[in-house]
Amino acid sequence: MTVVQLVVNGLLLGGVFALSALGFNIIYGVMRVVNLAHGDVVVIAAMVCALAFGALGLNPLVLLPVAVAGGFVLGAAIHRLLLRRLPAETASTEASSLTLTFGLSFFLAGGGLALFGGSFRSVPFLTGAFDVGGISIPQAKLLAFALALVLAAALAAFLRFTAAGCAIRATSQHLEGALACGVDIDRVRTLSYGLGTAVAAAAGALMSMIYNLNPQMGVQFTVNAFAVVVIGGLGSYAGCVLGALVLGLANAFTSYFVGASLAEAAPYVLFILVSLLMPSGLLGRRTA
């Protein structure tokens, strides 16, 4: 029975990981930028939700649209004001954008620490649990999982059916091709960075219901998202969801069997292992 319980916990957690990783994946797909500030946005959104719940009684459901809008504005601003200004002639653009988001991550984490302090916070909302044949399903986790899937589906629909989504997909598949078709790459990048960050913020709002977080934990979510994307295959959205479920399961099992203190290393170890062992991921595109 424990195993079933762990599987349920892992899958529920995996849903929220999937949402967060989708945002990371869009940014990587379109810009080839590994956004190391991703997890910090997740955590800051969760902090804001926790504070708003405590002070104003606003629950994360109400705050979800606010998080999405705020995340979008933040992401678009980061692209417009920072990433876009990286000098083009920097030979190793990948290294410079990576280093930039590394700095940004410290900026956000440090800012979060200064603003919110180092204590752990969460939103005590829907604290009950359903009992299904001896398996406990916490209501908050179920709700977060369901909302994550709804948002992921909305994102998928946006990418598939709208002109902007089409431009995003085209750019991530073939930059020159998209340019040749008259796509305004710069705008697509701003949009993608905004979208990716909005998704991270939404994931943070959901995360606040199920996790105890402090501002310094952002990097763990970044590594989580990175690991999910590596497991699923860079650029593959379906792989992303699959990878997140795998990671959610791994997380649930390691924290049960090795204890919370060692489990902290699990995402890092997993990231290193999957990068080494399956560089093109479960569903990734193979390149010759």
């Binding site: 700095g103 984490a109 440090g110 800012g111």
Partner: peptide, 9 residues
Amino acid sequence: LMLFGGLLV
């Protein structure tokens, strides 16, 4: 930390 991260950016 915030200032140092910002400095790098």
